[in-house]
Design a protein around this nucleic acid. Structure first.
Lengths: 116, 116
DNA sequence: ATCGAGTACTGTGCGTGATACAGTACTGGG
DNA sequence: CCCAGTACTGTATCACGCACAGTACTCGAT
């Protein structure tokens, strides 16, 4: 790539949303770690990546909290792939987090309008 | 109030937005610290507070970075009041942060839609 | 054949921001 | 007279995201 392109998505703005984002990606189907990484990178139009280190730490945390389960899957190329599957608890947390996000978004939108 | 009411606005969701929120509140007029605190608490409908300690730390950071200036004002009741005033640099950062927020919000909204 | 780039995962250590907790000082109402 | 509210300050802690580093495999180009 030619440019890092003045990343508008600062790390701290992502903070706290990473779990929800990962759970969201896993909602439709099981996916392996690197796939989730690529899916998120693509969803931002390549404008931003959540760093691998961040994501793999997130997977560990989600698993520790029982929100996802993992299993080794058939590797076609490259390294072995560890797949993640959302548990019922994970689904519940996801829905709660989405609700929290909606609330937060509206509140911030509302406050920022004051300064206009 | 009777209830802490299962705070849906977790600290980490606010993370990184505090500076912008404070700058926003200061956009219209100079305000003193505790006033900003109350303004934010009210803007969230009392559902959430950004903690005093967090805000005062934010004021210090903003001042250190030259985004706000402070001066002691006439105290009518309670303790002395330190007023904050946005600098031109602060205004510039505020506008950039609002733009960043809009981008971030849309990206997160977009990703979370995947899991629907 | 071998070298680098891409795929795929793991681990350590650091910086930053939000908070808990604690403390100072003044004022007005019960 | 004391407590609650107003108003500000400081210290220590914790979690998250990231930089950086490393392992291991595969495929295409040289």
């Amino acid at each position: 790539m030619t440019e890092p392109a003045a990343d508008p998505l600062a790390s701290d703005l992502l903070r706290g949303h990473t779990d929800t984002i990962v759970l969201s990606v896993l909602q439709r189907a099981d996916r392996y770690g690197f796939e989730i990484f690529k899916a998120i990178r693509q969803a931002t139009g390549g404008a931003h990546e959540i760093k691998e280190a961040t994501l793999y730490a997130t997977y560990r945390r989600l698993q520790k909290d029982g929100l996802v389960e993992s299993y080794w899957g058939g590797e076609t190329q490259g390294g072995r792939r560890k797949y993640y599957h959302v548990t019922d608890a994970g689904r519940a947390v996801f829905h709660r987090n989405v609700a929290a996000w909606n609330t937060t978004r509206d509140i911030i939108d509302n406050i920022l309008q004051i300064g206009k």
